[in-house]
Design a protein around this nucleic acid. Structure first.
Lengths: 176, 176
DNA sequence: ATGAGAAAGTCACATATGAGACTATCTGGG
DNA sequence: CCCAGATAGTCTCATATGTGACTTTCTCAT
């Protein structure tokens, strides 16, 4: 999903269609999938511009960004693990890993207990690149959440934790 | 963002890396942008598979899906309005609209008060196509939220409302 | 032990997308 | 009135992505 550029609240302010109120809340609340839609709305405006900027500034792709984020949290994991927790398709993560290795941002070792698997590790250069873009993401997250009180933020996170724990119980594709 | 296919909780169940607990919560909580990451995690598993299935089954693209959802809520709006509230880039919405019109799923009228703008309307066929995929999205949203009590769901939505209202105050790209 | 089937990772192809230039139209200050 | 700048929408080009096939390796039931 993508951001519409710089304009801020044009449609809401304009409201020239003459069909009743068109403020943000009513528009977002108007679809039949309100909660999912609103999550998407907020998240799109957080994630897309940030990631696009990182992509352009640092010349890396989204799967590469995600892989570095993941490895910064835990090294020695495999491509499959990253797919699992990022939701990216394995072909994309695979391409990302190949690129990252070409650029010497990560290193991979064959898992001796299972020769199909490759354990991934950051190089110092990889760590440095990560350090270069993560502050932007942190800052933008803070801005996004700044309208919530500390206790609301806690609430929100704990609800998200519940939702996240629950994902494996409904996300199977074959139920679609 | 993309889904990893059918596997459900493999990494969490496996935990063979021998580096300590690798359950869902710890992984998701391990990044430096916890809340944004968790929102993304949950939403990806909701949105990507659903949309991909719609794309394949019905032969339409994401901007087309979003445009139909938006028009079902309110007709007579313009491409810019849809960009505004969907976060998609205008080139993509433009392409989507052109495709939708070719397929006779929408109709467009030049706004007589501003000849640059085109007001969009669903055709019966467009409405019918929308009706074909929205139940899937509703059902999946219900499944996603089924781990929350009704009051938790209310809380979650009201926090999302706050976040959504706040978007215009921080989402400007030039601050990146 | 062995063969069927699953899993990890890669690849090739078609398509969807992002960036940015471009046209046409509108707006507002002189 | 008129021109500089903004805005709506479209287009072109390069790139990123989704799909599904493929290879290699592993697992497990017989």
């Amino acid at each position: 999903m993508r951001l519409s550029g710089k304009s801020r609240n044009g449609a809401a302010a304009r409201n020239q269609t003459g069909q009743g109120a068109s403020d943000m809340a009513s528009v977002l609340g108007g679809t039949e999938i309100r909660i999912a839609y609103k999550m998407g709305y907020v998240l799109n405006f957080y994630r897309e511009p940030s990631f696009r900027k990182i992509e352009m500034d640092l010349g890396i792709t989204r799967p590469e960004i995600v892989t570095l984020i993941f490895l910064n949290y835990r090294e020695g994991v495999t491509a499959s693990d990253i797919c699992e927790f990022s939701g990216h398709l394995k072909a994309n993560i695979s391409r990302g890993i190949i690129l990252l290795e070409k650029k010497k941002l990560i290193r991979r070792d064959i898992d001796t207990s299972d020769n199909r698997r490759q354990q991934l590790y950051l190089t110092p250069a990889g760590r440095a690149l990560y350090a270069k873009y993560i502050p932007t993401l942190r800052k933008r997250e803070r801005a996004m959440l700044s309208c919530l009180s500390p206790s609301e933020r806690k609430q929100f996170e704990s609800l998200l934790d519940k939702l996240a724990e629950h994902v494996p119980h409904w996300s199977a594709v074959d139920e679609l």
